[in-house]
């Protein structure tokens, strides 16, 4: 496997998750992920020498810049409801669940949204999230407690269904 392919497979879920946390729809998240990896390809001579956490921090910074540029171009923030209408769902995906999760995330502020996605989607712990976002671990833990309470209230229905399964 080429070094760049290995790099891609290591970080693709991370980049995609950050794009979603920035409020992108699924299609936009894919486009942003593609752009971020093309930037990485252009600078791969430098990026390939980084440690994995630094690579993630670099990719996150690039993706945030790209998302900001895209937002400036469109001049319209992405409505959470667009997630359902703008992208064709794959058969195994539950659009209602997806919509509810995006809606629940949409009620958080941008930093909390990113923390929640990193914690619950990428299953990073508080220390890793803190290092990535350059925020003290104690602050992350406090914010996570708020997010947990908030999300549990918003997604109570789905939690009950999970228990039924």
């Amino acid at each position: 496997m080429e070094p760049f392919d290995a790099f891609y497979h290591t970080h693709v879920r991370f980049v995609y998750a950050i794009a979603l946390a920035r409020g992108a729809t699924r299609c936009e998240a894919e486009d942003l992920t593609q752009e971020a990896f093309l930037r990485a390809w252009e600078h791969f001579g430098m990026v390939c020498h980084f440690e994995a956490p630094s690579q993630r921090a670099w990719l996150r910074r690039v993706l945030c810049n790209l998302a900001t540029d895209a937002w400036r171009r469109n001049r319209a923030s992405v409505a959470v409801a667009d997630a359902l209408h703008s992208s064709a769902e794959t058969p195994e995906e539950d659009p209602a669940l997806r919509l509810d999760v995006m809606r629940a995330l949409g009620t958080l502020d941008p930093q909390d949204r990113e923390i929640a996605v990193l914690r619950y989607f990428l299953q990073m712990n508080s220390r890793e999230v803190g290092e990535l976002l350059q925020i003290p671990e104690s602050t992350i833990r406090r914010k996570l407690a708020d997010c947990r309470r908030h999300l549990a209230r918003q997604l109570r229905v789905w939690d009950e269904e999970t228990e039924d399964e």
């Binding site: 995906e93 539950d94 669940l97 997806r98 619950y120 989607f121 947990r148 549990a152 997604l155 999970t162």
Partner: peptide, 27 residues
């Protein structure tokens, strides 16, 4: 609660293998 939220997030936001391959081809 954390475990339940992880499960919900995985099901809702997961990048499928097909999506991942498609994205790789596009890149």
């Amino acid at each position: 609660l954390d475990r339940a939220l992880e499960s919900v997030f995985q099901r809702a936001l997961e990048l499928t293998a097909e999506q991942e391959r498609g994205l790789h081809r596009r890149i």
